[in-house]
Design a protein around this nucleic acid. Structure first.
Lengths: 348, 348
DNA sequence: ATGAAAGCGCTAACAG
DNA sequence: CTGTTAGCGCTTTCAT
């Protein structure tokens, strides 16, 4: 990525010189010095009650809103955390971002989101932009990044958390689980049930490395057990309609059990199976990944894997927040395994 | 909200005084003045090719990453847009945020997200935090806000876009459609089909004002047509499992047609109906809202309403981006109706 | 416990 | 086209 890429200020909106209320205004009104106001804001207990009252009044009267931008500059580090996910349309990530935002907000941190559309170059661009905010931390999805991204991040000294995947060598901290193991567990379930043939339905496997790993684990385990298993894939998003499409393709040469990239795909399979009069699990066994809300409601309920998105979010937040108070370093890199749960249900 | 709320800098991570590469460093290396570097970054065409080359080299050699925080301070206005939605778990909003983020990024704007959990007070807190970033714009969901929020926003002179709903009096710009009309259209469809009784299944109606308006429109239209219609509601999220729950409650006194808060709820109804052996649409007609991906795949396909989340996102981005270049003011407030489409399918 | 002073890294007139 | 000069609003020693 060339250097000319960051033009951080195109012709800007003519913000009229509105006299924003500043800390100095507050100080004047309260008849104290600006630094005292600053101190009060950051550590109210450090100023006398008499002054605290005056400052508080001034703030309310004036409707003062602090300027984090200025604060960030002075303090050499803003209170934003940049979170970069492949896609917000994906329920896993929107769930994680949602929980993360909530948790970080408690710690006084603002969440900056970006989505890479599963592109490593796009990710690099986002990281570049993120670093321009001198963020308190950068959260990335997965442990596969291009070289420039890694270099940028390491060089910046910014705390980094990679989430939703384990196994690469972490830049700093990693929180997630092994997707290959997920695939293996599903395969094992199918093997235990005695199904004699199987397939994995995958979407965007060349971009979604985690889904690819699940498929690989699945196929490997099947092969080890001597159960014939195929991979059907395409490059469309992991949606229900794509599930229908993938399953249609699979039906040209049917199998006894099918594992899906995720629950959305599985939902598509369920519908298409209904349309074709295929009974689940009698004629076709079905498994998904994600344990999204509807999985348990399906008819029949879906066998799936619960990755606990919020557990990941909690752990990530913890990494960031704790790092934030203690200046501990050199303890990295670390991997935190949040595990996953196979949820056996009637579908397969 | 009291004044003590914003402590924008808790004991901060001890960032060692790492010598971040600054613009001055680049200037020195390239043997030009800092302002020339700044100019090059913002308007490459304004510097001579000779110097451009030197600067570019220096940037690459040094691995310079611009500091937006400093830039924002100097330019009196950062290039972030704060987007506040009720929930990111909701597919409508994650879709909108996703698209918005993409579009704004093109314009060099970073997206700051916050979710209010459908609470007006929470929203106020988020707006307060957002304004601390001197954002280029604030995007809110819906047109219902508390007084403090409105005051804060108006006072700040920040461009505001309220999305996903029309009908209130906009603070600045509004992009969306009438949810009441959505309800009426669905009702009309049911009336046209000759169903003699109906119900609306609603989740969180006292917090989700938009869903509440859909229910009101629906009920009003039904009443006008003399078709008996009931409202079944609870305070759980608008999920598939809640759809099941609401429908179970409805089944104590069945009706001929049921309209749902959204498609997730409708999916729950479909499953529960299947379990009870109720045939759709023969015995029960069903309609949703959202036209989520799976709606068209359901068995039978779901009659629903398509709000076009990305159309909203596009229009919002347009409002922000265009405002950004031309300093036009005083043209507000404006409402942009993005409309919606009733998508009739086999379910009802 | 409070204040004075010195920047943080960059942009934006303005001069040359 | 390039450089000089002031800040932007806040935090942070360091005195008092």
């Amino acid at each position: 990525m060339a250097s000319g890429d960051f033009n951080h200020s195109r012709p800007q909106r003519k913000r009229r010189k509105m006299q924003r209320v500043t800390m100095t205004d507050v100080a004047n009104t309260a008849d104290v010095s600006p630094s005292t106001v600053s101190l009060y804001l950051r550590k109210p207990s450090a100023v006398s009650e008499r002054i605290a009252i005056r400052v508080r009044r001034a703030i309310d009267d004036l409707g003062y809103v602090p300027n984090y931008v200025a604060g960030g500059l002075a303090a050499a580090g803003s209170r934003v955390v940049s979170v970069i996910v492949p896609s917000l349309r994906n329920a896993f990530f929107s769930e994680t971002v949602s929980e993360l935002e909530r948790l970080l907000a408690r710690g006084g941190l603002q969440t900056l989101v970006g989505h890479s559309e599963y592109s490593l170059d796009q990710e690099e661009a986002l990281v570049r932009a993120a670093l321009s905010w001198a963020p308190a931390a950068v959260v990335l999805t997965g442990c596969r990044h291009n070289d420039a991204t890694r270099k940028l991040l390491i060089r910046s000294q910014t705390p980094v958390v990679e989430m939703w995947e384990l196994g690469g060598d972490p830049i700093d901290q990693a929180v997630g689980f092994s997707h290959e193991q997920v695939g293996r567990h599903i395969a094992q379930r199918f093997i235990d049930q005695g199904y004699e043939s199987a397939a994995f339905l995958g979407a965007r496997l060349d971009e979604d490395f985690r889904a690819a790993q699940r498929s690989q684990g699945f196929l490997a385990e099947m092969e080890a057990a001597g159960v014939p298993a195929r991979l059907i894939e395409n490059n469309a998003p992991a949606s229900t309609s794509n599930g229908v499409r993938l399953f249609e393709e699979l039906c040209m040469a049917p199998v006894r059990a099918v594992a899906c990239s995720n629950d959305m795909i599985a939902l598509g399979v369920l519908f298409e199976a209904q349309r074709r009069g295929l009974s689940i699990p009698t004629q076709l066994a079905l498994a998904g990944f994600g344990d999204l809300d509807f999985a348990a409601q399906m008819v029949p309920p879906l066998t799936t894997v619960r990755p606990s998105a919020d557990k990941i979010a909690r752990k990530v937040a913890e990494c960031i927040l704790s790092r934030d108070v203690s200046g501990d370093d050199e303890s990295r890199p670390v991997e935190h395994d949040t595990g996953f749960t196979l949820v056996p249900r009637a579908s397969g």
